[in-house]
Each structure stands twice: as C-alpha cells, then as structure tokens.
C-alpha cells in the first residue's frame, strides 16, 4: 500500500536557496517568483526526507499521513 506524505513549508524561514528543489528525487517542489520552495506535486513524494534533512533553515516538514 503506497504511503502518503504531507509537506509543510514555512516560507517565512525559507531563504530560497534552492537546495530542496535540486535534491528532491521526485521533483515535488517548484520555486515561486521569489525562488522560495513550493509544493508542486505532493503525490509524487516518497518520504525520503532529503528536503527536510538538507534544508539549512528547517523550513520543510515531511509527515507521513496515517490513513485511517
């Protein structure tokens, strides 16, 4: 059964460094007009946490969705 994930981005803390966008193996993210990360295709997220663990500003949280 495929796992689902939820990604929250604290855009106040995001400094538009682009690391998460670059590293995400599934291209889940896109850059807004300020270059800040936004979730483009949540369904592709595989929960590898590469974004969260490489975010220098702790602006991304990936949480597994427990389907009831």
């Amino acid at each position: 059964m495929e796992k689902k994930f939820n990604i929250t981005i604290n855009s106040a803390w995001c400094k538009a460094c682009g690391i998460c966008i670059f590293l995400c193996p599934k291209n889940v993210f896109d850059a807004d007009d300020e270059g800040k990360a936004v979730v483009k295709s949540l369904e592709k997220c595989i929960g590898c946490l590469s974004c969260e663990v490489h975010c220098p500003d702790y602006a991304i949280e990936v949480v597994e969705v427990q389907n009831d």
Binding site: W13, H54, P56, Y58
Partner: peptide, 14 residues
C-alpha cells in the same frame, strides 16, 4: 530564537 543568521544555503544550518 530561530530563524538563524546564516546565509541562504549555508551548510551550517544543515
């Protein structure tokens, strides 16, 4: 007392 002062993409945060 976050966010911190390090520059965008600074490895210190990681």
């Amino acid at each position: 007392n976050l966010p911190h002062i390090w520059c965008p993409g600074c490895g210190n945060g990681i």
